[in-house]
Design a protein around this nucleic acid. Structure first.
Length: 580
RNA sequence: GCACCCAUAGCUCAGCUGGAUAGAGCGUUGCCCUCCGAAGGCAAAGGUCGCACGUUCGAAUCGUGCUGGGUGCACCA
């Protein structure tokens, strides 16, 4: 599937043959032998470092190995040249037929082109968003939601068995605050003045909750004390908030496979079981922590606490799992929750956190490491801030929530597709500017537009061809005489298409969905470049007088379109067929 | 004080897990287009990859120590 992997296999086979012939000593480790695109395309199509990696263990000069290897490789029909260069690189050139064949393969596979099996048999859990169920989702959540969802898509495309999961933080004090805030709105629904005291949630989104409470309870709770209604209203409000959050996520095109509740962990013995598992490992003890140096809290006093020896698994200090009154800290259910994920049989866990939670990375990794006996890897992606801009200045207003910009505001102003794409135009750990004016601009400066436009152009070509009576079904295009794609400019585009399967694998291995967005931009750029050359060089236009030539050229364009659609699918962005 | 993240062209950022002469867009400069396959095109200039050591055939990439910015640091989640 991945051409680079194919050629690498060929290289390894040649090396093995050389061992059999005695050109190379036996017992060499080939794992560091790589076949990659060279940095400079002028060097060739692919380069292998085999000679340099093996020179030392083989006790031979790099050039000696490289030249012998070159001789072997040239007997492969796909390889037209193999030149030794630099310190011992072997630069390979592949026959045009290889690239032409790839175009055909893309057409035959459709949007499955690039699908990989490297994750086959690996169960991965991607936990993301996990916003507190106390209000609508805001901008801060959008990026994490998009990154998590796109990453899940990417991993699935590369063969992983993916579960998307949302952890509902409904076990702490914040849902009590939610209940009290909702109670005030309930009073308001009865015509009373709500008392939104300091510390309560002031957002107007709770007004409908108050009305729903009135619907359900009438006036029966109005003069009752908190002890009579807190649990019920908490449950009721949390449900309504989660419903709202699901709708917010849906508006962004995100759906979860599993919603896990923190509250549901209490009273089931799961927390105790997780902590006891650690205890059996000798990782739980009663002790006193040192005060943090440099910034000692005002009310600090030495206190005996139940601690998790996270330092045994790479953390900097041990962490408390119980408060001084004996109740659990927030960390305890988190441990239990991750233990639950381990017990559900996941081989790999991914958490998407806001960058402000960076301090919890080591302790969570320590917990997973301990509870899985090192079997399960936890990767935590920290998502940096998004700064919103409009009219050249920071955008802060919100229609509904008052204090923050909601996800809905963003989606309504920019659209889900644009929002998703832009959120992936930066690495997760770098801050991102989101300018409402720029992201909606129809110009080359806007990457979303640029990529969509490339696909629209492909569709435009096919539309015109159909109008001219041509058959441009994928089957016909795949059967075209692709040797007519013999111009270097066309071969270059085919080479870019060839990179797609490899990119999918690299991006998936690194949990880096942003790579897909960058690749699509480059691919679009190549298509636009070829299109533009058609202005001056009519023989590079996609539509020619000769049907066979046209069919071949359209096949190339269509292959680009297929990859763009496939890539956009991973990003969760709908490809457009026509720009308006 | 400690931990984590960031630092690459004037600006915004990539850089395929250690490869060759470090890339793209914007901006700048110069040419082309204003008979629609131009919601522009071609080309050029622009860099001590924050600094200093180290690891090795080879470092923007790995290690150590600094500098500057961000985030977070017991009984909040």
């Amino acid at each position: 599937m991945n051409l680079f992997a194919d050629i690498r296999a060929t290289v390894i086979a040649a090396l093995t043959e050389m061992q059999a012939e005695g050109t190379l000593p036996s017992g060499l480790d080939f794992s560091n032998v790589a076949v990659e695109p060279p940095r400079d395309a002028a060097h060739g199509d692919m380069a292998t470092n085999a000679a340099m990696v093996l020179a030392k263990p083989a006790g031979l000069q790099p050039r000696v190995i490289a030249e012998a290897l070159a001789g072997k490789l040239l007997s492969d029909g796909r390889i037209t040249s193999a030149d030794v260069a630099g310190p011992g690189f072997l630069n390979l050139r592949l026959a045009p037929v290889v690239w032409q064949g790839l175009v055909q393969k893309a057409l035959l596979s459709g949007t499955d082109f690039g699908r990989s099996m490297i994750g086959s048999g690996i169960k991965v859990n991607v936990e993301f968003v996990s916003a507190n169920p106390t209000g609508p989702m805001h901008v801060g959540h959008v990026r994490g939601a998009v990154v998590g969802d796109a990453l899940a898509n990417l991993l699935a495309f590369a063969g992983w068995e993916v579960t998307r999961e949302y952890y509902i933080n409904d076990g702490g004090a914040q849902v009590d605050v939610l209940a009290r805030s909702a109670f005030e709105r309930y009073r308001q629904a009865h015509g009373l003045d709500p008392e939104i005291r300091e510390g309560l949630y002031p957002g107007e989104y709770l007004i409908p909750v108050g009305e729903a409470l009135k619907e359900k309870y009438g006036d029966s709770l109005l003069d009752k004390g908190e002890q009579f209604w807190l649990a019920d209203i908490r449950e009721f409000s949390t449900q309504m908030m989660m419903q709202m959050i699901r709708e917010d996520l849906a508006a962004l095109g995100v759906s979860m496979d599993v919603y896990s509740s923190e509250k549901a962990l209490y009273g089931t013995g799961k927390i105790e079981a997780a902590i006891n598992t650690l205890r059996d490992m000798g990782l739980i003890y009663e002790g006193t922590l040192e005060p943090p140096k440099g910034k000692e809290p005002e009310d600090w006093e030495p206190r005996v606490q139940t601690l998790f020896r996270s330092t045994a698994h790479g953390d900097d200090v041990d962490r408390p799992v119980q408060k001084s009154d004996g109740s659990w800290t927030y960390f305890a259910p988190d441990i239990a929750y991750h233990f639950d994920k381990v017990q559900r049989g996941f081989d790999q866990l991914i958490d998407i956190f806001g960058a402000d939670h960076g301090g919890y990375v080591k302790r969570m990794k320590a917990a997973v490491s301990a509870l899985s006996g090192g079997r399960v890897a936890l990767d935590i992606k920290l998502i940096q801030l998004v700064k919103l801009w409009k009219n050249g200045e920071p955008f802060k207003m919100s229609k509904r929530a008052g204090t923050f910009v909601t996800l809905r505001d963003v989606v309504e102003m920019a659209g889900a597709d644009v929002t998703r794409f832009i959120m992936l135009t930066r690495k997760n750990d770098v801050a991102l500017d989101f300018d409402f004016d720029k992201v909606l601009e129809q110009s080359k400066d806007n990457p979303v537009f640029y990529v969509q436009y490339a696909n629209a152009r492909v569709n435009s070509i096919m539309r015109k061809a159909r109008e001219a009576g041509m058959d441009v079904s994928d089957a016909t295009l795949a059967a075209a005489d692709l040797t007519k794609l013999d111009h270097v400019a066309e071969i270059e585009v085919a080479k870019k298409i060839a990179e797609w399967p490899r990119l999918v694998e690299t991006a998936a291995r690194g949990n880096e969905p942003h790579r897909v967005a960058f690749y699509l931009y480059e691919l679009a750029s190549d298509l636009h470049g070829l299109w533009n050359r058609g202005n001056d060089e009519p023989n590079l236009r996609f539509l020619q007088d000769d049907t066979a030539t046209s069919t071949a050229k359209i096949a190339l364009a269509r292959a680009v379109g297929v990859v763009i659609c496939s890539g956009l699918g991973i990003l969760g962005v709908t490809p457009v067929e026509e720009m308006r």
